[in-house]
Amino acid sequence: MAIIARARAMRKALTPPEARMWVQLKLLRAQGFHFRRQAPFRGYYLDFVCFNRRLVIEIDGVTHAIEARANRDRVRDAVLAGEGFTTLRFDNAAVRDDLDGVMAGVMSALEALPTRSLRDHPPHEGEGES
Rank of each mutant, 00 (worst) to 15 (best):
76 R>L: 00
110 L>K: 11
86 T>Y: 04
118 L>G: 15
59 I>A: 00
74 R>E: 13
82 G>Y: 14
74 R>S: 10
87 T>M: 12
84 G>M: 08
108 S>Y: 06
122 P>R: 01
60 D>W: 05
47 D>E: 09
78 A>K: 15
80 L>I: 03
49 V>Y: 05
69 R>S: 05
66 I>S: 03
67 E>P: 11
59 I>N: 01
53 R>K: 15
52 N>G: 00
73 D>T: 04
85 F>T: 02
92 N>Q: 02
95 V>M: 04
95 V>C: 02
121 H>C: 15
82 G>E: 13
79 V>C: 12
118 L>W: 11
72 R>F: 02
84 G>S: 08
85 F>I: 04
73 D>L: 02
83 E>G: 01
65 A>M: 08
90 F>Q: 07
85 F>A: 09
82 G>K: 15
47 D>N: 12
46 L>T: 04
45 Y>L: 04
115 T>R: 13
99 L>E: 09
63 T>H: 11
40 P>H: 02
120 D>N: 11
68 A>W: 01
104 A>D: 15
123 P>W: 05
95 V>H: 02
95 V>W: 01
56 V>S: 08
50 C>W: 08
44 Y>D: 07
41 F>C: 03
46 L>V: 02
103 M>Q: 09
58 E>F: 06
120 D>Q: 12
107 M>H: 14
120 D>Y: 10
72 R>H: 07
83 E>W: 14
112 A>W: 01
57 I>L: 12
63 T>K: 09
98 D>G: 00
105 G>N: 15
59 I>Q: 02
102 V>T: 10
103 M>E: 11
109 A>L: 02
66 I>H: 10
49 V>E: 01
104 A>T: 14
105 G>L: 10
70 A>I: 04
95 V>K: 04
76 R>Q: 03
108 S>M: 11
55 L>I: 00
66 I>P: 00
118 L>E: 13
62 V>P: 13
49 V>S: 00
93 A>S: 14
106 V>Y: 07
78 A>R: 15
53 R>Y: 11
43 G>L: 04
78 A>C: 10
117 S>M: 07
69 R>N: 09
86 T>Q: 14
76 R>W: 01
68 A>L: 05
106 V>P: 09
102 V>K: 09
113 L>Y: 05
114 P>V: 00
111 E>M: 12
78 A>D: 14
55 L>H: 03
117 S>C: 07
70 A>G: 02
78 A>F: 08
118 L>Q: 10
105 G>T: 08
67 E>Q: 13
116 R>H: 13
